[in-house]
Design a protein around this nucleic acid. Structure first.
Ligand SMILES: [Mn+2]
Ligand SMILES: [Mn+2]
Ligand SMILES: [Mn+2]
Ligand SMILES: [Mn+2]
Lengths: 225, 225
DNA sequence: TATAATTTTTAGATTAGCCTAAACATTTCT
DNA sequence: AGAAATGTTTAGGCTAATCTAAAAATTATA
């Protein structure tokens, strides 16, 4: 159980996040290389190393997935990342576009007691400032019932539940158009040509957003009154 | 101004701390090697590197001292270390013997905004939980007027102002004998043979401590009433 | 299905930060 | 002052984590 390096922890975390995107849960070398902005050769090296440590199941030319041990660690890193982000916004009054980079560093601080005390200090939050679920100490993650705004139904009442947290530019854009978590959103119309979306925000403000932007937002459906 | 590695930051911090011990401010290779628990050869390597970066003035076989730039960085690392320690005790309710190791990691998180907000969140504290002065944003350190308990006068009223923070064992010992910062201490007697010290704590409790222990405590004098 | 394109791995190199052993410089002792 | 002891540097080597270029495997295309 010797502690992992920050680099190894990052690999596990990104394997986990990418594995959730693909149905079979198998992550390809190039996907990781793109995500990490490393060469494919570097990724292959690290996958062999993690495989020897039994943290991933790696098959040459096929792909990689997490073992039970690897998954446990990946989820704990995610827990730390999201608890720190919550602290930065709730207590230190950072805006949500400034926290991801700092949390990328803080998530690798090694101390179980630290993160448990932080969890308690924050009141055991379930979601981080971007609406991402925070795994609990045991590693349980509540699966929010959300749909990507790009795939949501027309004329149906939703609420903004979750935004992609790793693009500061996107979050700044949301700040600018004054769209926040839990705002009510309804798709009034979708342009066929470029899939531009007409939104109604909180029953009053109208807004046009790109399909690209919509791919970075997830919404939960809301009972109509 | 490319950012320094955690290792480089640690070297600068320890050079600063050791330089305060010696009158001339010159730190020797072996002192650093001992402090860092590295070989003298490793230290020489790093000193050459820091010297090339103009962070230290290094003369072969003579010793090393910080340049103006090196000093600025060392003090900022110390500031971060002590602010984090303060947070861990004040907010997360850690005991003072558990925080040093965690702060050794946290002090290397790179974000000026983070540490400035933390400073404000804590109410701009002047001293950390061990009584060490916290440098302000500009790098000013208040010089507390203290004397080492091993060198303090007999029968004079003092107050415990500062304890050595890098030995958890020593801090646990203080917990056990229930000695805390700001407790009143008076030396009743000093044994000639082994320099064992007889202390009076808060005008009531008597305590015998070793010369070794006394070397880890600093006291400020208190006006007698 | 053979060939071309793409993806992935292997081979070999580099840098940071450590090490040990040996050489060299300085200080201390007789 | 000369020898011995001590302190410091140099030489050479190692591991983790990256890279580029070339080779190999897989997938797509004609
Ligand atoms: Mn994040
Ligand atoms: Mn997040
Ligand atoms: Mn440190
Ligand atoms: Mn301290």
């Amino acid at each position: 159980m010797s502690t992992l390096s920050a680099v190894e922890e990052n690999y596990l975390k990104y394997i986990f996040q990418l594995s959730e995107i693909f149905e079979n849960g198998i992550v390809k070398t190039n996907d990781l290389a793109y995500k990490l902005d490393h060469s494919a050769a570097s990724v292959t090296d690290m996958l062999k190393k993690l495989s020897e440590k039994k943290l991933v199941a790696y098959k040459k030319y096929y792909g990689v997935s997490l073992t039970r041990n690897g998954l446990t660690i990946a989820v704990q890193v995610l827990r730390k990342h999201r608890l720190w982000e919550t602290f930065l916004v709730k207590n230190l009054k950072f805006t949500w576009d400034k926290i991801h980079e700092i949390a990328e560093q803080l998530e690798h601080i090694q101390s179980d007691e630290l993160i448990d005390r932080m969890d308690q200090y924050l009141g055991f939050p379930k979601f981080d400032p971007h609406g991402d679920p925070i795994p609990d100490k045991a590693g349980n993650i509540s699966l929010p019932n959300v749909v990507c705004l790009a795939d949501a139904k027309l004329k149906k009442q939703y609420q903004l539940a979750n935004v992609n947290d790793d693009s500061a530019a996107f979050l700044k854009y949301l700040n600018k158009i004054q769209l926040k978590l839990n705002d009510k959103v309804k798709i009034l119309d979708k342009e066929e040509f470029d899939e531009t979306i007409q939104l109604l925000i909180n029953d009053k403000k109208q807004l046009t957003i790109s399909n690209d932007a919509a791919h970075n937002m997830w919404v939960r459906s809301v009972k109509e009154i």
